[in-house]
């Protein structure tokens, strides 16, 4: 269920941020140069979902910062109540939310800051941090039980 193929997979996270590219250096760029974020007409971008847009290679949507992470958040859809707290406070636009439903995490752009886990209100939390190498099934099988209220 996490492998949603929602965000145009061919464009997402294809570049490492530091990767050398076939481009002139930053110090050779003429002043006043423009980097287009999109290919073609971009006037309707505010009405398109990310997977419907035509990103250019200059858009950081095509880059990845996955290597920054040591721990990753794992999402458990069974516990989630779609409150969207994680969506509004994610600093890296990494919570994939469509039609008022939380669908998963964009691991190419997530830096593992843990803010989403902190703001999650459910019991047990529907987002938890696991080691980067942990696979999804193992992580989900280790999910804690509901905590009883302390009196």
């Amino acid at each position: 269920m996490q492998d949603l193929k929602l965000c145009a997979q061919d464009k997402r996270g294809i570049h490492e941020l530091e990767a050398g590219k076939d481009l002139i250096g930053w110090d050779e760029v003429t002043q006043g140069s423009v980097l287009p974020s999109f290919e073609g007409d971009a006037s309707n971008v505010a009405h398109l979902k990310q997977e419907e847009r035509c990103y250019s290679d200059f858009n950081s949507y095509t880059a990845t910062v996955a290597s920054w992470r040591v721990k990753k958040p794992v999402f458990n859809i069974d516990v989630c109540i779609d409150c969207q707290n994680c969506w509004v406070w994610c600093p890296d636009t990494s919570i994939i939310s469509r039609d008022k439903q939380m669908l998963g995490i964009d691991y190419d752009h997530c830096k593992g800051c843990e803010v989403c886990v902190e703001v999650c209100p459910t019991n047990p939390k529907s987002l938890l941090m696991f080691a980067e190498q942990e696979d999804l099934e193992t992580a989900l099988s280790q999910w804690p039980e509901k905590k009883k209220k302390e009196k």
């Binding site: 996270g13 941020l17 971008v45 505010a46 009405h47 398109l48 979902k49 990310q50 858009n59 950081s60 949507y61 880059a63 990845t64 910062v65 779609d82 409150c83 969207q84 707290n85 969506w87 509004v88 890296d92 636009t93 990494s94 939310s97 039609d99 008022k100 964009d106 190419d108 752009h109 997530c110």
Partner: peptide, 14 residues
């Protein structure tokens, strides 16, 4: 927040 979350993000990650 649910209605707000239907907005299309225009500030990209990475």
């Amino acid at each position: 927040l649910k209605e707000f979350s239907t907005a299309n993000d225009r500030f990209e990650g990475a």
